[in-house]
């Protein structure tokens, strides 16, 4: 059964940031789950059906990059689109991250929640289209 609303996992250790992202995505009609560290996020990805991952880069346990790498090596999770949030600046090699990890986008903090919501919407439309067209 296809979920009625796309399920988005937000991995963010900063509680305030996680709250505001969850608030905006819920307002946009998505189902949102928040994890506060890398291990929890990866566990949630493996256990539940997640349509899109939004992850902070720097987190306790596993970094956002490490979660994405683990996902790309897991056959079931390989096609889950991911968006990376980062408070880091120039020290991140964005091109490498996008090419190697197949990221949809890298957003640098501070970012616009409206843009993030829009980006999520576009990404899901592109990613879920084939699934929606497949007969149940």
């Amino acid at each position: 059964m296809v979920a009625s609303t796309p399920h988005i996992l937000v991995a963010e250790d900063n509680l305030a940031m996680a709250d505001v992202v969850r608030f905006n995505l819920r307002n946009a009609g998505f189902t949102v789950t928040v994890c506060r560290n890398g291990q929890d996020a990866l566990g949630t990805l493996q256990q539940r059906s997640i349509d899109l991952l939004i992850t902070d880069y720097q987190m306790p346990g596993l970094t956002g990059e490490e979660i994405c790498r683990a996902m790309r090596q897991d056959v079931r999770l390989r096609h889950v689109p991911a968006i990376l949030l980062s408070a880091k600046g120039l020290e991140l090699d964005v091109d490498m991250l996008r090419n190697e990890l197949g990221l949809q986008a890298v957003l640098f903090k501070p970012f616009s929640p409206r843009e993030l919501t829009q980006l999520v919407r576009t990404t899901l439309e592109t990613a879920l289209k084939p699934v929606l067209q497949t007969p149940a």
Binding site: N14, M17, V20, N24, A87, P110, S112, P113
Partner: peptide, 14 residues
Amino acid sequence: LRTPLANIRAYAET
């Protein structure tokens, strides 16, 4: 700097 700024911007915009 970015972390509190990001929160301020996100909350204000929201």
